[in-house]
């Protein structure tokens, strides 16, 4: 079916690139899919669209069919995630989520579920607690919605039920393998029982349940390392925002540690060590 000449849609601005004198090329995620559009004159301070089409804004927009790409003719911001403007760490998590969506979703593909997931993620990164854990929930949900859900209940080799023990993650087959099969797979990485429980919990619950989870730093780190390996293997490249996210977190941890320690102390940052509830 041909696309209408003018259409109205809701959209999140995933990324923006300056173009020509005062224009911007925007990558948008809409409930109907990812689109790249042109916003003419939007870099001029007097443009009526400028404030409405900021990065990560949720906006209602009118798109007119253009020769090479659609043009934004009207825009009205519906939701501005204000905390992202004031908090560097929250901003960087939002960048990470947007980069993931941009990499996983090809042009003209996507769904309303994916759109809702990103809106929820931006809301959480803007105002929520435990951004790391929510980031893991987002990664697993994104993998599921784009058809890359990791297999977490049955061995990806022998298809037997996984036992409550350390199992192995095989990146190539995208899931856990039992110790007998896993130890035969070169490069398969061991995954602790508590990390498996957390992954299954995050994979099967709704987002409201994420806030009820409280993890040890060691579990957070194990799951994060595993998820980054899964994402990098699936995308066949490293995500650009990860480096800055790591740097920022380590700077914040050092700053926090120097605040807590007497001056001159050079000990590493102290992390919380709550019991694993998963």
């Amino acid at each position: 079916m041909p696309r209408p000449r003018v259409r109205r849609t809701e959209a999140i601005v995933l990324r923006e690139r300056d173009y020509a004198e005062a224009d911007r090329i925007l990558t948008l995620l809409t409930p109907g899919g990812k689109v790249t559009v042109m916003a003419k004159g939007v870099r001029r301070p007097t443009s009526r669209k400028t404030g409405h089409l900021g990065l990560f804004n949720r906006a209602e927009i009118m798109l007119a069919q253009g020769r090479n790409m659609d043009l934004v003719t009207q825009a009205q911001a519906l939701e501005v995630f204000e905390e992202l403007w004031h908090d560097l760490l929250r901003f960087t998590y939002a960048c990470y989520a947007a980069e993931l969506v941009d990499r996983f979703v090809p042009e003209d593909e996507g769904s309303s579920d994916l759109y809702d997931l990103l809106v929820s993620a931006l809301r959480w990164f803007s105002t929520g607690d435990d951004l790391r854990l929510w980031c893991r929930y987002f990664e697993l949900s994104l993998l599921r919605q784009t058809g890359y859900a990791p297999s977490l209940h049955r061995c990806v080799v022998c298809e037997g039920d996984l036992q409550a023990e350390t199992n192995y993650f095989d990146l190539a087959q995208g899931g856990l393998a039992c110790p007998r099969c896993g130890m035969q797979i070169p490069g398969a990485r061991p995954v602790s029982l508590s990390a498996q429980k957390v992954l299954r919990y995050l994979d099967s619950r709704d987002m409201a349940s994420v806030g009820m989870l409280s993890l040890r730093e060691s579990s957070q780190r194990e799951i994060e390392t595993l998820m980054h390996a899964v994402l990098q293997y699936t995308l066949e490249r490293e995500l650009k925002s990860t480096a800055f996210l790591r740097r920022l977190r380590s700077e914040l941890a050092m700053r926090e540690a120097s605040r807590q320690k007497p001056e001159g102390s050079a000990k590493p940052p102290v992390f919380d060590d709550q019991p694993d509830s998963a």
């Binding site: 960048c95 650009k240 925002s241 800055f244 996210l245």
Partner: peptide, 9 residues
Amino acid sequence: HISPMERIG
């Protein structure tokens, strides 16, 4: 400017 998505830190 800082742009994590463009690897500009």
